[in-house]
């Protein structure tokens, strides 16, 4: 998937052309020759070995555990086949968590991506004074432990004497303090905003890294043509950073699906189950509430991951198709 996403040259080719192109698509310099094969695989190996051991293997283990009724302590003996999956398919809490997680991830991504891009463009302007200072300010929330960030906002958002309500009430914007984390319609939204606050710096940096790909002379050329800042953004910056941008948006979404720490410290999944998210669901099943259900939690992880992955792939497929056939 990523392979296609990051392919810079493509668009508007007929089927036949495409097929032809496929054969000759690999430019001369990208082909691997002779003993370079040795180097290519040697370069891959450090990453792949560690990746297999520390990511792929735990993943496979998760899949294996999902077929067992298991508390994570006793020997792995109680094989129940797809039993966990049947149970979880009927667990309304899991599906509620599923829905909440998707909502969280989508809204969160939609807010943080454009905002952080804007900040990154702004904070890489040559003429701007104090770039380092402002970058550090936007980056700073990221270094706070999540538990700490959750605590501050629980205090700041609190309806009894929280700073934000104090301000809102004294400015007569609201007449009665708002219970940001207790109101069932606001709790998830509040989590989203706090999460954007905390993670913002990360995406700002990704964008700043991506913006380095834009050669300066392109801007100079655009400027000679009389382009203003907005046009430079649309016609120069965005097209050039598109391949990396796709990766960044994708990462933003996937990382948002992993929302966990803020839920633990700010709402504990509440009010009721309104902010239950899948990682929190997995955590409580596997490690918090007795009896531990490692197998069940693993099944939840697998089901969630596979469903989201498939949804994204299908969407990616349609996006590509509409990209290729604009009519």
């Amino acid at each position: 998937m990523t392979a296609q996403m990051t392919t810079p040259q493509k668009r508007k080719l007929s089927r036949a052309e495409k097929r032809k192109r496929k054969k000759t698509a690999v430019p001369y310099s990208k082909r691997v020759r002779g003993k370079d094969y040795f180097w290519v695989y040697l370069f891959l190996s450090p990453f792949l070995i560690l990746y297999l051991g520390f990511t792929v293997w735990p993943l496979i283990a998760t899949v294996i555990y999902s077929f067992f009724e298991w508390d994570g302590i006793k020997p792995l003996e109680d094989f129940i086949g797809l039993g966990n999956f049947f149970t979880i398919a009927q667990d309304p809490l899991f599906w509620l968590a599923f829905r909440n997680t998707l909502m969280f991830a989508v809204i969160n991504t939609m807010i943080k991506i454009p905002l952080s891009l804007l900040a990154a463009i702004f904070l890489t302007r040559k003429w701007l004074w104090g770039k380092r200072f402002f970058r550090t300010i936007f980056f700073a929330p990221l270094v706070l432990p999540v538990a700490m960030a959750g605590l501050i906002f629980s205090l700041l958002l609190h309806p009894a004497n929280g700073a934000i309500n104090d301000i809102l009430v004294s400015l007569h914007i609201v007449s009665k303090p708002i219970d940001f984390l207790g109101d069932e319609r606001l709790a998830l939204l509040s989590l989203i905003f706090v999460s954007v606050w905390q993670i913002f710096g990360q995406y700002m940096i990704y964008w700043m890294a991506a913006l380095q790909n834009v050669p300066e002379d392109l801007y100079e050329a655009a400027e000679l043509d009389g382009a203003n800042e907005w046009k430079k953004l649309i016609y120069v910056t965005l097209p050039v950073i598109k391949p990396v941008a796709v990766i960044i948006i994708f990462l933003a979404f996937v990382n948002a699906l992993r929302v966990f720490g803020l839920v633990v410290t700010m709402t504990g999944g509440g009010p009721g189950f309104q902010t239950y998210v899948v990682p929190y669901f997995i955590y409580t099943q596997a490690l918090v509430d007795f009896p531990f259900r490692y197998g069940y939690a693993s099944a939840a992880a697998v089901l969630f991951g596979v469903t989201v992955l498939m949804a994204v792939m299908i969407q990616g497929y349609f996006v590509r198709r509409s990209d290729e056939n604009p009519n």
Partner: peptide
């Protein structure tokens, strides 16, 4: 948890 939601 359900009682909490109703109370809030």
């Amino acid at each position: 948890i359900s009682m909490s939601e109703a109370l809030l």
